[in-house]
Design a binder for these strands. Sequence first.
DNA 1: TCAATATATTAGAATGATTCTAAAGTGTTT
DNA 2: AAACACTTTAGAATCATTCTAATATATTGA
Lengths: 137, 137
Amino acid sequence: MNNNTHFEEKLRSAGLRPTKQRLKMCEILFHRKKTFHFTIEDLRKVLKKKLDIKISQATIYNTINAFKNKGYIKEISLNSDKTYFDTNVTNHHHFYNVTTNELIDFHDKDVEEIKLRKNLPGKKIRSIEVLVKVSNK
Amino acid sequence: MNNNTHFEEKLRSAGLRPTKQRLKMCEILFHRKKTFHFTIEDLRKVLKKKLDIKISQATIYNTINAFKNKGYIKEISLNSDKTYFDTNVTNHHHFYNVTTNELIDFHDKDVEEIKLRKNLPGKKIRSIEVLVKVSNK
DNA sequence: TCAATATATTAGAATGATTCTAAAGTGTTT
DNA sequence: AAACACTTTAGAATCATTCTAATATATTGA
């Protein structure tokens, strides 16, 4: 099974038609060893440089939003003018280097269990995320 | 010592001139019992309704940025199209209700100490923030 | 207190990320 | 292949935030 077939199935199983644009974006986003942290701008540059493809702005946004809604990628909570996404959709946390704007993952196992002493009756916990801001010394 | 004098001193001690606009904003932001979570839009509405004042957009942004730089307020890391600020500048964390967009503080003491098993050599930790996303059931 | 200087405020324009529009194109189903 | 549904596109629209440069206010020093 080559990647294309794999990605076609992935898209279909989420109810998304496997179009040329979506398959190309899958290649960039998911055919890699390490987690990819990106903004829309980063992604457009990669599409251009690596695949020499131009996908319109609107399609990139539509597709990323579709992927987000289907749980293929997730949005990262940072205060930044741009929105950051992450191809790692497992429960995990981030180091954010405020000097370089670099983001680094760390997993649940890299932190001792987070135990809340406060809870909100009638509410359901959806996620617990830790953001560690660091700077170069 | 009335509030105005208090706020004048607060501003001066941070190297900010106590102007009419800044004093009015201090009243709204700091003369309250509970933490205030707000966006620029929220703040403008309150200035308008409570004090019947119009401060220009640019001044509101300039002043909020000055207050942020002086550590009077802090920015909250959320993914939202708008930037959220918090008048509670102590180390603390947030519940974010994704159903209602409501933000609730919880303090360091409301969570067991967060112990990282991973660290980044050559980097200095600036803050550790927890964001707990909840929804109405 | 007054003039000189430095800093702040303002309206409106500019910028930049994201979303919308509606027309043309592609994928799916029969 | 026809009919239908969904997708892509360029460009316009929107919205938060920042910039501009003119005017106003605060501070300093004589």
